[in-house]
Design a protein around this nucleic acid. Structure first.
Length: 840
RNA sequence: GCGGAUGUGGCGGAAUUGGUAUACGCGUACGGUUUAGGACCGUAUGGAGAAAUCCAUGGAGGUUCAAGUCCUCUCAUCCGCACCA
């Protein structure tokens, strides 16, 4: 018998599969389908252990589905546009295109060495014209539907790299690359109107089989909040200040107003005519200037210290008619709501802190509901929650109470609940035209333009006569020019290519200039799952018929870091395509799972500086892909990850070695190497048959729900059994190899062929278990007295209560505690336990 | 602060509907095999105790004949978001 030599057999079978097209996606679109997708990797040129952990278990799942008769689509591709290519280009003096293609080449080799069952005929790369042509098409479609627009928007700007940064490239206010402080700049940007889909994106989350934390994060990101917009009149002026509030019930507690420094009215207060009114204008002007200059980081870190300034003006509360001072403070953000708030220090923590700092009055208008029987509170005759009716927590917070409760000190509204008063005030402001209902979202429109080279050019032309003109679809792709100066200089590199920049207007044929920004790479990845259904298609981005068959994705597996952006953008794009009637579904990913994070052996996050990085290429050389796949499956729950254990992987190698030996020892004994089913003995089902069918059941169910660790444990248990018996029938060997084949595709293929099989094990049918054969004939009955285990009895399954009791009472250990007279009652759970409950 | 999770041997972790806690692997110990080491095979392995037994699933209560599992409170760790009015 040859020794188990993974490098040799793995290369052999990888070549075989490629030659035979073993994993080619079936073209017939009849029968059940299964689309198993992993998040296509960025073409970094290095397949790290995190990729393996994402891809190998996903492949195990896909293989299982394939063997269960599904038409499986399990593709791979490259998310190959993006900033690192430009950085590499500058650093290594190699063109981003060449760098990217080299990386794709190298990663392809690495991916092939995993043994994953990809259909290599379907590889796509976002940076290739045949793909980005259709990304541009998508842009045009979104533009046509009036969901793309150009507007000034604040962008993260790195003054050192001279470029705009995406939000995810800003780490606590600093550039991820050079750690310079990031500035906010107003730049003309292309935006997608994702906010128009906010409600649908929120509502449809309920349809999805996604991890709860992912759903929660998307809900939070969309951040729907329902409230009222209410107008406050500025005293002695025609101006009104509109505020947004979700707590209209607290309006009688408003003792001041706050405007964001960027609020349009602030400029008015600074105007010469206003300045004559008071002495506040100098301070106001200084404050506003400094607040506007403040960098993102400072504003964020200023959360403890409330700063602000009085404008000198007053506003009138539309309900109470009270006169309240107007302040400016940067704790109010222009970007949310109306950029103005009513300050309710009795019932909002931030307003409370502000009031304390500037010595503004705090007024209690809501009291906890459990004090509602306190007559003074109900009548509204006290201005604060009396100490004697406060509980300990409330005493700590002083006059601050932020929950809903009962309304006091609020005129005709006193004595009602918060909910009732919110409703009443809504009616009041509508009737009197001082406000209306309003829904706000935290979700912002998606800024899709990037002032960078390595991305898909935005297919727009600027013409002096015709304005913004979309490029006709027939002119796509707008090729990314090769010969440009892509060193960062503050404007888009595409502008340095005159051939690219200068064009003719598609409408008037006059001279025009192209848009020089490229698209956010998240646009590339927002639709790639559709393209996989027919990546070679030249006439369209996808065929409606193929997409109808394959989509939505049945199982989407990838890192939790894409929980918000990629997954939200893909959902948005899918809904746009649905509205255009190009597809028939509204959600792209039916089931979603995230693999956990693998930590270094020391339990820390892997990093080069800590030297705790596990390199899969080294593992491959030592143990082979099958061992790595098995280890990744076995190390723990898939969504949990955890520290790498160098000794653990040794155990997996040993396990495979034992399988290797055991299956081959069977072949040396032809007399038991029969393919006929294991015979039943006279008594019925043999142990070996029962254990086999139980293993089939357990492994099948576990792979189906991605519980790879317990599936492997059960395969190990079965192996231990077979090994203890010291002989294996051919049927057992065949079944064992089939069950193991998704985990260890190379070794099982080798042993399969050594068993004399001529076709690939991976195209075989998955074993089916027989429910009748897994039932026990003998069961262990647990005998408890007062809930404590005292003994056990092995009995025939289905034994009656009477018989079981009779047997149990004869046991010595039971007799010690149980007499004929001291039993209060007996609990009997068939085939499980007897519990004697003793009289007290 | 808000949201989502997790807590079980020396370690990674198992455990349908509440019903044998610690499957499987790692490590360790002893034995076998081997010229030796490694590899391999076998046995044992939660803690205390001579034993009978008792104690153990972060902690404290509760429900139940019975709780890792259900309920209440609490502590710790991880992740995400965060001046969102």
């Amino acid at each position: 018998m040859e020794r188990y030599n993974p490098p040799k057999i793995e290369k052999k079978w990888q070549a075989f599969w490629e030659k035979e097209g073993t994993y080619k996606t079936p073209e017939n679109q009849t029968g059940k389908k299964y689309y198993c997708l992993v998040m296509f990797p960025y073409s970094s040129g290095d397949l790290h252990i995190g990729h393996w952990y994402n891809f190998a278990p996903a492949d195990i799942h896909a293989r299982y589905k394939r063997m269960n008769g599904f038409n499986v689509l399990h593709p791979i591709g490259f998310d190959s546009f993006g900033l690192p290519a430009e950085n590499a280009a500058i650093k290594r003096k190699i063109h981003p295109h060449d760098w990217t293609e080299q990386n794709i080449e190298r990663m392809t080799q690495q991916l092939k060495s995993t043994g994953n069952s990809y259909d290599w005929g379907r590889v796509l790369a976002a940076s290739r014209p045949e793909y980005y042509k259709w990304t541009q098409w998508l842009f045009l479609l979104i533009y046509k539907r009036k969901l793309a627009y150009r507007a000034k928007a604040l962008a993260n700007w790195c003054p050192s790299c001279q470029t705009v940064l995406a939000n995810e490239q800003v780490e606590s206010g600093k550039c991820w690359r050079c750690a310079s402080e990031v500035e906010q700049r107003d730049i003309d940007q292309w935006m997608f109107r994702i906010t128009e889909y906010a409600d649908r994106l929120l509502a449809d989350l309920d349809k999805l089989d996604w991890p709860s934390q992912t759903l929660a994060m998307q809900r939070h990101w969309i951040g729907k909040s329902e409230g009222l917009e209410i107008d406050f009149q500025v005293e002695g002026s025609k101006d009104t200040i509109k505020v947004f509030t979700t707590r209209a019930d607290t309006i009688y507690g408003a003792t001041f107003m706050v405007l964001a420094p960027e609020h349009p009215l602030v400029a008015k207060f600074l105007s010469p005519e206003s300045q004559t009114k008071g002495s506040h204008s100098g301070a106001l002007s200084d404050y506003v200037t400094s607040a506007r200059k403040k960098k993102e980081l400072e504003r964020l870190s200023a959360d403890k210290d409330r700063s602000g300034v009085f404008t000198g003006s007053y506003a009138l509360n539309p309900l109470s008619n009270e006169r309240i001072p107007i302040y400016v403070s940067d704790y109010v953000l222009m970007g949310y709501g109306t950029g103005a708030i009513m300050g309710v220090p009795g019932h909002d923590a931030r307003d409370n802190a502000f009031a304390k700092k500037y010595d503004l009055p705090v007024k209690t208008v809501v009291v906890p509901a459990h004090h509602s029987r306190h007559p003074e509170l109900v009548s509204g005759s006290v201005s604060e929650i009396p100490d004697q009716v406060r509980n300990d927590t409330e005493k700590d917070t002083g006059p601050l109470f932020t929950d809903y409760g009962n309304i006091v000190n609020s005129g005709e509204y006193s004595g009602k609940t918060s909910e009732e008063v919110i409703q009443k005030i809504k009616e009041y402001v509508k009737d009197n035209q001082v406000g209306d209902s309003k829904v706000n979202y935290h979700l912002r429109d998606w800024v899709v333009s990037r002032q960078r080279y390595w991305g898909a050019p935005i297919p727009i032309v600027y013409c002096d006569k015709c304005g913004i003109v979309p490029v006709p679809e027939s002119d796509l792709p707008i090729m990314l020019p090769f010969d440009v100066d892509y060193t960062p200089k503050g404007t888009s590199p595409l502008g340095t290519s005159p051939d690219f920049l200068n064009t003719t207007c598609p409408e008037c044929k006059g001279p025009a200039k192209r848009e020089t920004d490229t698209m956010d790479t998240f646009v590339d990845s927002s639709w790639y799952f559709l393209r996989f259904t027919e990546p070679w298609l030249e006439s369209d981005p996808f065929s409606e018929e193929k997409v109808k068959y394959w989509l939505p994705v049945d199982m989407y597996i990838g890192g939790a870091e894409h929980t918000v952006l990629h997954l939200l953008y893909s959902r948005f794009v899918t809904k746009v395509l649905f509205d255009e009637r190009l597809i028939t579904f509204e959600e792209p990913f039916h089931a979603l799972r995230h693999q956990g994070t693998i930590l270094g052996p020391d339990g820390d996050k892997m990093s080069k500086s800590k030297g705790n990085v596990i390199n899969p290429d080294d593992l491959l050389e030592t143990y082979g892909s099958d061992t790595v796949r098995l280890y990744l499956s076995f190390m723990g729950p898939y969504d949990q990850g955890g520290p790498w254990d160098n000794r653990g992987i040794e155990g997996m190698y040993r396990f495979l070695g034992r399988v290797w030996t055991l299956v081959q020892s069977n072949m040396a004994e032809p007399e038991i190497a029969t393919e006929s089913p294991t015979p039943r003995n006279d008594k019925g089902v043999t142990d070996s048959l029962r254990i086999m069918h139980r293993t089939i059941k357990k492994v099948s169910e576990d792979i189906n729900i991605l519980h790879f660790n317990t599936a492997v444990a059960s395969l190990m248990g079965y192996l231990n059994y077979l090994q203890s018996r010291k002989q294996v029938t051919r049927e057992e060997a065949v079944t064992y190899l089939l069950l193991l084949s998704p985990f260890a595709p190379h070794m099982t293929e080798e042993l399969w062929s050594l068993l004399g099989k001529k076709t690939s094990i991976h195209l075989e049918k998955w074993p089916v278990y027989d429910g009748e054969l897994i039932k026990d004939e003998k069961v262990t009955l647990v005998i408890q007295v007062d809930g404590k285990v005292r003994d056990r009895m092995v009995v025939d399954a289905g034994l009656s209560k009477e018989e079981a009791l009779g047997g149990a009472r004869k046991l010595e250990k039971v007799k010690k505690y149980v007499s004929d007279t001291n039993v209060d009652k007996v609990v009997f759970v068939p085939d499980k336990l007897i519990n004697f409950v003793i009289k007290i």
